[in-house]
Amino acid sequence: MAISSELLSAIISFLMTIFILSYLIRDNPLFRAAIYVFVGISAGYVAAVAWRQVLFPLLIEPIWTGAVFSNPAQAILLFFPLIGSAFLLTKVSPRLGGLGHLPMAYLVGIGAGVTIGGAVLGTLIPQINSTFEAFDLELAAASGRNLLLTTVNSSIMLLGVIGTLAYFHFGARLHSDGSVRRNVFINILTWVGRIYIAITFGVLFAGVYSAALTALIERIDSMRIFFNQITLSL
C-alpha cells in the first residue's frame, strides 16, 4: 500500500497530537520529544525564511550578481546592513563582541523610537479622542444612535477608563493616626476600576479559553479525519 503524503502528514499530525496530549498524565519523554521537534522545526524554518526571503534576495544576491554596483545609491544603502550584520556576527567572540554593540544600539534605538512614536500617535492620542467623542451627541444623532443609550454607554466607558487609571495611581498621604491611605474619592474610583479590570481579565480568559478550545476541537477533528482516512484506506 502506497502511503500518500497526505496520509503521512496525517499520521505525523496524529502522533504529535497524542504526544502533546500525553502531558495530561505527566511530563514524559513523548511530550518533550514533541516539544523539541516543534522548537527545532520552528527555529530551522525561521532561519530558512530569513535567509531565503531576506538575506539572500536583499543583501547577498545584489552583491553576488553585481547588480548593486550599477546603482551607487543602492550600493551605499547595502553597505550599512552588510557592516552591521558583520558586527553582529562578532558577538559570538568574547574578544570581538564589542563590535556588535554598534548595530545593536542602532536596532534598539530605532525600535524604541518607532514603538514609542507609534504608541503615542497611534494609541494614546486616538484613544483619548475617542473617549471625548463618545459624548458627542451630534455625532451620535447623525449616526442614528439613541442619545440616551449613547450617553449611558459613554458614561460607563468613561467611568471604566477613569477607574482603571485610578487603580494604577499609587499616591497616598500620611494621616494623623500614622497610617498611609489614599484619598476616599480615589479609593472609590479604584474600587470601580478594580471591577472593570476584573471584567477585562475575565473577557481575556474567556477569549484564551475559546481560542484554546477551538484549537482542541480542530485537533480532535483532525483525528477524526485521520481515522476516517485510515478507515477509508483500509
Binding site: 486616538p126 484613544q127 479622542n129 475617542s130 463618545a134 477585562t200 473577557v203 481575556l204 474567556a206 477569549g207 484564551v208 475559546s210 481560542a211 477551538t214
Partner: peptide, 15 residues
C-alpha cells in the same frame, strides 16, 4: 483570535 479580539475592540470604537 478570540483571545485578542477584546483588546482590539477599542480601536474599532475609535475608528
Amino acid at each position: 483570535s478570540a483571545q485578542s479580539g477584546p483588546m482590539i475592540l477599542p480601536y474599532v470604537q475609535s475608528g
